[in-house]
Simulated assay, not measured.
Amino acid sequence: MNLVSVRLITDDVKRLVAFYERALRTPASWSTDDFAEIRTPTGTLAIGSTRTVGLFGPGAARPADNHTAIIEFLVADVDAEYARLSPGSPMSSPCQQPCPGATGPCWCATPTVLCSTSSHP
């Protein structure tokens, strides 16, 4: 079995795609106005409109109401990435926390976590 993608459901596909394109520095591939994928060497992030939820059954997902997923990224400089991504992003205010596999500080900004690969202050 192969993991194909992780899909996020949103009422504002363009806004969420724009954020993750900026975060991953990778352009999305759009299938329709309701669905896009951002493919990276380590996985694919799929972003779908609430109009696509019916394909999976009524109530299969609710936008902005998922309290079971956390998306983590390893970065060289947490503070610089947070400053780059925070304007106009869906990220909340950061809180510092330990991050598995990270060698430096970690900022959690729900639903995205930035974990440092270096031990900068």
Rank of each mutant, 00 (worst) to 15 (best):
I9C: 07
D11C: 04
D12T: 11
D12M: 13
V13G: 00
K14D: 11
K14H: 13
K14R: 15
K14L: 13
R15K: 15
L16K: 05
L16E: 05
L16S: 02
L16I: 12
V17Q: 03
V17Y: 04
V17I: 10
A18N: 03
A18H: 01
A18G: 08
F19V: 03
F19S: 00
F19M: 02
Y20K: 02
Y20P: 02
E21Q: 11
R22V: 08
R22G: 11
R22T: 13
A23M: 01
A23Y: 00
L24G: 01
L24D: 01
L24P: 00
L24E: 01
R25I: 09
R25E: 12
R25G: 13
T26I: 09
T26A: 07
P27D: 03
S31E: 13
S31Y: 15
S31K: 15
S31V: 14
S31G: 14
T32R: 13
T32G: 07
D33Q: 14
D34W: 14
D34S: 14
F35P: 11
F35K: 06
E37R: 06
I38Y: 03
I38E: 03
R39F: 07
R39L: 04
T40N: 04
T40C: 03
T42V: 13
T42F: 11
T42C: 12
G43P: 00
G43H: 11
G43S: 10
G43T: 09
T44F: 02
T44C: 05
T44G: 01
L45H: 01
L45C: 08
A46Y: 04
I47S: 04
I47F: 02
I47T: 08
G48Y: 03
G48W: 04
S49A: 08
S49M: 03
S49V: 05
T50A: 12
T50W: 10
T50Q: 10
R51P: 05
T52N: 10
V53T: 06
V53F: 01
V53S: 04
G54K: 07
G54R: 07
L55K: 14
F56C: 13
F56K: 04
P58K: 15
G59I: 03
G59T: 08
G59K: 10
A60K: 07
A61G: 05
A61L: 01
A61W: 00
R62D: 10
R62Q: 08
P63E: 06
A64F: 07
A64V: 05
A64G: 06
D65R: 11
D65H: 12
D65V: 02
H67F: 12
H67M: 14
H67P: 12
T68M: 11
T68I: 09
A69N: 14
A69H: 15
I70K: 08
I70H: 08
I71S: 01
I71D: 04
I71G: 01
I71R: 00
E72L: 06
E72F: 08
E72Q: 09
E72A: 14
L74C: 13
L74Y: 11
V75T: 05
V75F: 00
V75W: 00
A76D: 14
D77Q: 04
D77F: 03
D79W: 10
D79V: 15
E81R: 10
E81N: 09
Y82F: 08
A83D: 15
R84L: 06
R84S: 04
L85T: 00
L85K: 00
S86E: 04
G88F: 06
G88I: 11
S89T: 07
S89R: 00
P90R: 05
P90A: 08
S93Q: 12
S93G: 09
S93M: 13
